Computed example of a mutant assay.
Amino acid sequence: MTAQPAPRDDDRGGLRASHDDREAVVEQLRDAAAEGRIDLDELDERLERALTAKTYAELDALTADLPRPPAPADLPPLELKGGLHGASRGPGRWEVPAQVIARGGLAGVKLDFSRAECRFPEVTVEAYGEAAGVTIVVPDGWVADTTAMDPGIGGLKDTTTQDRLPGTPLIRVVGSGGMAGVVVRHPNRWERRKLASNPPRD
């Protein structure tokens, strides 16, 4: 049997779209409405068409008149330094780059992915516990790989599960625990309660 050539980008219109493809267009439409580019009536109409779209061509038609979102590769690495006062990112909505560097310093760093938006299949987190430690909070359904982590003196505590949901990224943690260590976990009871009481806005 002769192998069929892979479709070019300009030939993809007739290909079937996935759930993730439809969801990405839904998010782009909601962002456009929030920015005032389309009104609410038009948003409802386009959302309905996006959720029932079967091909890339149908999805592309819904965003053809909207600015294209920045490519994930355009996002620079995020570096958090605990310093004297500590540093954190999350749990609010933020866009995850392909690389995050967390240095505990003297006051610690907390990196919370609970409501983060990630377009990458894999994210590398360089965590250095140093004197005050680094805490990484991973949502349920996301998976962390800490096998390449050096526990150092402070150690590594990873209590996350390996129950990965489709379409979620792998958080690959590397670096060193340093003096205070690195903790990788899912949200605790208090954090879950706080998230539940503050639902995300569309």
Rank of each mutant, 00 (worst) to 15 (best):
R16D: 11
G175R: 00
A144N: 01
R172T: 09
W142P: 12
P76E: 07
D60E: 13
H85Y: 13
E95L: 08
E45M: 09
R164H: 02
V25G: 02
R30W: 03
K157C: 02
A24S: 11
L78I: 08
A34N: 09
G83M: 03
G82T: 05
E117G: 04
R164D: 07
L75T: 08
D10K: 01
P97F: 04
T2G: 03
A24L: 10
R16N: 04
R189A: 15
V125N: 02
T52W: 04
A3D: 10
N198Y: 05
V174A: 04
V137S: 10
E42M: 04
P72K: 01
G155Y: 00
P7F: 12
T146A: 09
K110L: 08
A102L: 05
D140I: 02
A53G: 06
R201M: 12
A33N: 11
S197K: 13
A50C: 07
D44Y: 08
T161Q: 06
T168E: 07
G14L: 07
E45L: 14
T124D: 10
R89S: 04
D10H: 14
V173M: 02
R16G: 10
V143M: 12
K110V: 15
A87E: 00
V182R: 12
E42A: 13
G133F: 03
A24M: 01
F113P: 00
D39G: 15
A107R: 14
H19K: 03
P139L: 02
E117S: 10
V26D: 09
G105H: 03
D9N: 10
T63K: 02
D31I: 13
R193A: 15
Q4P: 07
L59M: 09
A98C: 01
D20F: 01
D20P: 00
S197C: 01
A127W: 08
L43S: 05
A33P: 03
R49M: 08
G177R: 09
A71M: 05
D20L: 05
V182C: 12
R93M: 13
